[in-house]
Amino acid sequence: MMGTRKRSVITEETALNQKGRRSRGTSKPHERRLYSWDEIPEWQKDNEHILHGYVKETQSWRELIRSLFYLHNESVNIYTHLIPAVSILLIMLFATHHVINEYPTTSAIDYIMIDLFFLGCATCLSMSSIFHAIKCHSLPIATFGNKLDYLGIVVLISTSMISILYYGFHDNSYLFYPFSALTSMFGFICGYMSLKDKFRSREWRPYRAAMFVIFGLSAVFPIVAGSFVYGVDETWERVQLKWIIWEGVLYIFGAFLYGIRIPERFAPGVFDIWGHSHQLFHVLVVAAALCHLRGLLGAYAGTHAKLSQ
Results as ranks from 00 to 15, higher is better:
76 V>F: 13
77 N>K: 02
78 I>W: 15
80 T>I: 03
82 L>A: 09
82 L>F: 13
83 I>S: 12
83 I>H: 03
84 P>L: 05
85 A>Y: 08
86 V>D: 00
87 S>K: 08
88 I>V: 09
88 I>E: 00
88 I>T: 07
90 L>A: 11
91 I>L: 15
91 I>T: 06
92 M>I: 06
92 M>K: 09
93 L>W: 15
93 L>F: 15
93 L>G: 13
93 L>Y: 07
94 F>C: 05
95 A>R: 13
95 A>W: 12
95 A>D: 03
95 A>C: 15
95 A>K: 13
95 A>H: 15
96 T>V: 11
99 V>Y: 09
99 V>M: 14
102 E>S: 15
103 Y>S: 11
103 Y>C: 05
105 T>S: 15
105 T>M: 08
105 T>K: 09
105 T>V: 09
105 T>R: 07
106 T>L: 11
106 T>G: 14
107 S>P: 09
107 S>Q: 12
107 S>A: 10
108 A>R: 14
109 I>P: 14
109 I>V: 14
109 I>G: 13
110 D>S: 11
110 D>T: 10
110 D>R: 08
111 Y>M: 06
113 M>R: 13
114 I>M: 12
114 I>Q: 04
114 I>H: 10
114 I>A: 05
115 D>Y: 12
116 L>S: 14
116 L>Y: 06
117 F>C: 07
117 F>M: 06
117 F>E: 00
118 F>E: 02
118 F>M: 03
118 F>T: 01
119 L>F: 12
120 G>I: 02
121 C>V: 08
121 C>D: 04
122 A>T: 01
123 T>P: 01
123 T>L: 05
125 L>Q: 00
126 S>I: 14
128 S>R: 03
129 S>T: 04
130 I>M: 05
131 F>P: 01
132 H>M: 04
134 I>L: 06
135 K>W: 11
135 K>S: 07
